[in-house]
Amino acid sequence: MGTIRLNQVRKVFGDTIVIPGADLEINEGEFIVFVGPSGCGKSTLLRLIAGLEDVTSGTISINGTDVTDVPPAERRLAMVFQSYALYPHMSVRDNIAFPLKMAKLPQEKINKAVQLAAAKLNLTDYLDRKPRQLSGGQRQRVAIGRAIVREPTAFLFDEPLSNLDAALRVNMRVEIMQMHKDMKATMIYVTHDQVEAMTMADRIVVLNQGKIEQVGSPLDLYNKPNSRFVAGFIGSPKMNLLENETLGVRPEHIALSDTAGEWHGTVKFAEHLGSDTFLHVDGGSRGNITVRAVGESSFYAGDQIWMTPDKDRIHRFNQEGRVIR
């Protein structure tokens, strides 16, 4: 079990409307990622699901039961915070055991569960240390251990990796995905990093100014963005938006030639990454265009270049930013 359903959930802080009204259905075992720029309300939405904030109106139900007015302690959800939020006065063992102690489980069961979780997360040698004696990655593991030990209905992650360095972040990302595969639990993951969203999610929820812009699988969002916002947010490097932002074409969907093509331009910079080359082209009246070329591209700064966009992969938007199909 682990379905979560939001029905017209609205959140207002004083005079500011943070979430104007969100509808969302999360299925059992899904890995959902909330993504959007900072201040788009993604963390607030997660905190509403957790029960750490009260909804202004609308309902939230978990497994079909309305939990709108149920305190967080009784929602049977687990949360991993960005700051880890470990209890600094407790050892790692006590940190992981805390939710079980609160659930009043017998001591032997608690010990067994803690050992199991610690083994899974490579924390067995650190069980008697205090959180301040651990590295960032280890702290993050403890926070995850504290979440998994209770076998909750769903896991909530609030930007859990943003305090880690880049290399560790990739490792932890894989570990969390592995965890999801093993446990088959519902997970909701908040991030502002679209790469994290694309790599981890079963379905992505793109938020913009509190509104859900689009919900779909990573490739759905990539191939069929509903709006200019989603088109610009998903994909790296960003989609080129041309002709008063009514026409969008991704850098990887432009064919190059040094003799003929649809658009003409001058290469301003070339980023040779080895696997790819990103060309930043001055397209004259069209403005700047980014193009992805093969790794051993022979174009350099100053070269004249002809570009031809893939006709089937051009996105057209109306003045409001909605896609025209």
């Binding site: 967080p72 959800l77 915070f81 939020a85 805390f98 209770r150």
Partner: peptide, 11 residues
């Protein structure tokens, strides 16, 4: 966040 974590943990 630490107090919120304890609430999430069922305290």
């Amino acid at each position: 966040e630490i107090l919120e974590a304890s609430r999430m943990d069922g305290a």
